[in-house]
Computed example of a mutant assay.
Amino acid sequence: MNIEAALSEAMTIDGAIGAALVDYESGMSLGSVGGGRELDLEIAAAANTEVLRAKARALEALRIEDSIEDVLITLERQYHLIRLLDRGASRLFLYLALDRSRSNLALARHTLRNVDAHLAL
């Protein structure tokens, strides 16, 4: 599936507010859907790039030789799910913001894993 279809699939998750495919190196969004007044996806893409970089530095400092699958940020009213994509030299991640009261976190993680598996770049 292409980027547009992948992001559309992510937005079918109950409670989805917005989704983006983000370049980890630059923090720039390669595509996004949703967001609007509730969430600026361009700012979220750049900010969550910094979250991933900080976590990668923490793993290195702790000498944990493992890779990040996803990162969950839990807010009072939202979940923010960041899923790193394994695409060789391309360093990308899927970002999904969810309304916490209308979403199922386990199902959201499962769906993002499926989107990751079918995303063709």
Rank of each mutant, 00 (worst) to 15 (best):
A5W: 15
L7V: 04
E9K: 11
A10V: 12
A10C: 06
A10Y: 12
M11S: 03
M11F: 15
M11V: 07
D14T: 08
D14C: 08
D14R: 11
G15S: 06
I17V: 07
I17T: 02
A20W: 01
L21T: 03
L21D: 01
L21V: 07
L21R: 01
D23R: 01
D23P: 02
Y24M: 12
Y24S: 08
S26D: 01
S26V: 00
S26H: 00
G27W: 00
G27D: 02
S29V: 00
L30P: 08
L30C: 03
L30I: 00
G31P: 09
G31N: 03
V33R: 07
V33P: 06
V33G: 01
G34F: 14
G35Q: 10
G35V: 08
G36H: 01
E38Q: 10
E38K: 14
L39W: 13
L41C: 09
I43T: 12
A45L: 02
A45S: 13
A45N: 03
A46N: 04
A47T: 08
N48Q: 12
N48R: 04
T49R: 02
T49E: 02
V51F: 01
L52Y: 09
R53Y: 07
A54H: 10
K55F: 14
A58P: 11
L59Q: 07
E60Q: 13
A61S: 10
L62A: 08
L62R: 15
L62I: 09
R63L: 06
R63Q: 11
R63F: 13
I64K: 15
I64F: 15
E65L: 10
D66Y: 03
D66N: 05
